[in-house]
C-alpha cells in the first residue's frame, strides 16, 4: 500500500529534539551532500517529483537506517545511474571512466545565484475546471497509492486516505506529481487545501477540534 517515507501518524518515534537556531548544517558533509544534489538537479535529467520518488523507493531497511542526507545521496546515485550520467561501475570503483557528454550542462559558480533564485513554479493554466468550492465536504480516495503506476509516486499520505474534510483554500492548477514523477507529463489539475478534523483522523486526538490540513489534487477527491 505505501512506502517507508509515508510516516505521518506513526507511533514509536520518541521526542522531537529542538536545536539552536543558528545551526544550518550539523556537519560539513551535510552541506556538501545538499550542494551536490542541487548541482546535479540543474543538469535537467529529472524533475523534483522524480527525485522525491527515488528517495521513497529506497528499501525500508535502508530508509530507516540512513540519516536524512544519506537518503538524499542514495536517491541521487539511483537517479544518476538510471539517467546514464554515471555507471554503477564508476560508483563502485570510485573513479570516473571517461568524461560525460553532459558537461555543457554543468552548473558553474557564476550561475548559482540565478539557478537558486529562478525556482521552478508548478502552477499552470489549464482548462480543467476546479469543481470544488470553499466549504465543500470532500472525501479522499481510499487508496494512498498511485492509481496508474504500481508502487508509483503519490502525495496522498496513508493517514488521510478515505477521510472526509472540507475545502479551505483553492490553489489553482498545479503539476500532478503522480504523473510527472514517472515521465508521463505534467497533467496539471486543480489543487486544494483540505482541512480534516483531528477526530476524523485519529482515535485519540490531542483535541478533537484541532485540524490537519493537506494540499490535495482534484483527482484525489470526491464529493462527500
Amino acid at each position: 500500500m505505501t512506502r517507508a517515507h509515508d510516516m505521518g501518524g506513526r507511533f514509536g518515534d520518541g521526542p522531537v529534539r529542538p536545536e539552536l537556531e543558528n545551526v544550518v548544517f550539523d556537519s560539513y558533509w551535510h552541506a556538501r551532500a545538499l550542494a551536490i544534489t542541487l548541482a546535479c538537479g540543474s543538469l535537467g535529467l529529472w524533475n523534483i517529483d522524480a527525485s522525491r520518488h527515488a528517495r521513497e523507493c529506497l528499501p525500508p531497511k535502508d530508509y530507516f537506517r540512513f540519516s536524512y542526507y544519506e537518503r538524499w545521496l542514495a536517491g541521487l546515485t539511483t537517479m544518476l545511474v538510471e539517467n546514464g550520467a554515471l555507471t554503477a561501475e564508476e560508483l563502485m570503483m570510485g573513479e570516473a571512466i571517461g568524461p560525460s557528454d553532459l558537461t555543457n550542462r554543468k552548473l558553474v559558480a557564476n550561475s548559482v545565484n540565478d539557478f537558486l533564485t529562478k525556482g521552478s513554479p508548478t502552477d499552470r493554466l489549464v482548462s480543467k475546471k476546479s469543481i470544488y468550492k470553499y466549504g465543500d465536504l470532500v472525501k479522499t480516495r481510499a487508496f494512498p497509492e498511485n492509481m496508474d503506476v504500481t508502487g508509483g509516486h503519490t502525495r496522498l499520505p496513508s493517514y488521510a486516505a478515505g477521510a472526509t474534510g472540507y475545502v479551505l483554500l483553492r490553489h489553482g492548477a498545479h503539476v500532478l506529481p503522480d504523473s510527472n514523477a514517472h515521465g508521463l507529463g505534467e497533467a496539471a489539475e486543480p489543487l486544494y487545501a483540505v482541512a480534516f478534523k483531528a477526530s476524523d483522523l485519529w482515535a485519540q486526538p490531542n483535541n478533537s477540534d484541532d485540524e490537519v490540513i493537506l494540499d490535495l489534487w482534484q483527482s484525489y477527491l470526491v464529493l462527500a
Binding site: 551536490i36 544519506e70 554543468k106 559558480a109
Partner: peptide, 24 residues
Amino acid sequence: RVKALETILTRKGLIDPSALDKII
C-alpha cells in the same frame, strides 16, 4: 561517500566544486 561522489562527478565534468561552495 560524499567525498567520493563529489570526486567522480567533478572528474566526469558534471559538477564544479566552486559552484558547490557558492550554494553552501
